[in-house]
Nucleic acid binder design. Sequence first.
RNA 1: GAUUCCGUAGCUCAGUCGGUAGAGCAUUACACUUUUAAUGUAAGGGUCCCGGGUUCGAGUCCCGGCGGAAUCACCA
Length: 514
Amino acid sequence: MTEKPLSEQEIIRRQKLQELENLGINPYPPESFLVNVTAKDIKQNYERDKLNYKDVSIAGRIMSVRDMGKAAFAVIQDATEKIQIYIKRDEICPDENKKLYDIVWKKLIDIGDIIGIKGYVFTTKTGEITIHVLDLNLLAKSLHPLPVVKVDESGKAHDAVTDPEFRYRQRYVDLIINPPVKDIFIKRSKIIQSIREFFNNKGYLEVETPILQAIPGGAAARPFVTHHNALDTSLYLRIANELYLKRLIVGGFDGVYEFAKNFRNEGMDRTHNPEFTGLEIYVAYKDYVWMMEFTETMIEKVVADLYDTSLLEVGNNKIDFKAPFKRISITDAIKEKTGLDIAHATETELKSLCKKHGIETEETMGKGKLIDEIFSILCEKDLIQPTFVIDYPIESSPLTKKHRNKAGFVERFELYINGQEIANAYTELNDPIDQYQRFEEQATLKQKGDDEAMYMDYDFIRALAYGMPPTAGLGVGIDRLTMLLTNQHSIQEVILFPQMRPEKILETEKENIP
RNA sequence: GAUUCCGUAGCUCAGUCGGUAGAGCAUUACACUUUUAAUGUAAGGGUCCCGGGUUCGAGUCCCGGCGGAAUCACCA
């Protein structure tokens, strides 16, 4: 509870709580309530199997009430959807005592309360499938008024709560009153389930690796720092799990994967949350060519599991997820846009290309960063259909094996869909001496002032020195994949509790805790 | 971190030129035994985000702060 004085409505509800207790009704009863049907089940199956719905028991939250004196209609919502109920005074109160209806139902039960009812299903004269209530139980009293969203005949919502701050801070309310929100998170769960099933069917092992790391490795990003008291040492929240999964490949597993919460101490916007979910998988004896086929098969399956089709409308685009996806090298992609073959361009030529297209550059930017910049500004947004962009410059890929026949490039692909990067994969660098040199180059960049350059990790070098089989690795941004597959514009819409500045009321309350 | 916009009842929102704070829903009371954005009648409910300033007078104008959103930068 907050320090704020109670509103009129909250005071009234607390009084009702007392009155319920005076009547001997526990507003928070401990017993289980036996539920034998869902609202969705009734709505889908009642018409063709009426006999099956003569004795239903269902629980849910009251969303609206239409009171007509000695009878009333209300709408309850369970985990599946809303359904109308019909309560007649003389049926729930067959004898002289009408208290349950006149006092409990009409005065003490409110919108937002959770009730359990028993009765039978029928169709009203206006044709709505409705539960005729014979038995009414209060299961939990609601003390905080629930915003009421009314939906008219055309399905249009009136007075819908759209304020993002309200919706994200009180996601529990958002989930109750904005049904499409719930659907997004059900789909998110299905996406993860579908991917996990795809991997498990191939015999790959789901593992867990450290979130608290002494050396934050596997990506170029600023980490969160924390402190371990007993060890008296700084630890970092992981920015990626890549180096640990590869250690497991050294250890003899031939396929390992992890859905990993990663943490990056950087800006927040509609595509970035400080904690986000990455999926990484590493498979021994494979290369990035194999990984492309693996990835497109997986994405096609996930989309099919969700929608039973490979065609999806995302924003204004129609996207076809049918494998195989298009492949294009980053050099060809840039050549198509600019006419310049960056494979043989010097740093000065790249900088003048940037200038020509109005791309800002910095002194510290090497060839790799320049090419990244040119690509992301000129090419990315036009990659609508699923496209593998392949063969990146070596400078910005310190964990990737050198290309088998393109000097200065590595065996890496990124998957773009709807102008967004969805996945990133390599033929993993398993040459310990080469890896050591790449880390050294990163260290030099760090000295030059690049605070996102990777840290040297001697233990990882030691692991590679024991011998890591040739390996292909893939990383997928689960939040962004979910955004894509649920047609959401903002990452906050696909994370249940997105990061927000702590609420002030709660801060002052904390000080009041003895 | 920068810029722009926003903050009024539990919720959604009006609020004119600076002059007594408004509506719908929700709440309370009464009526109503098949309604469905139920209906009818009546009532209550406000730290106008916070703090300064200008003014006879500020929800309104100015400055600062807090919170949010959008765009940009960093990044996935």
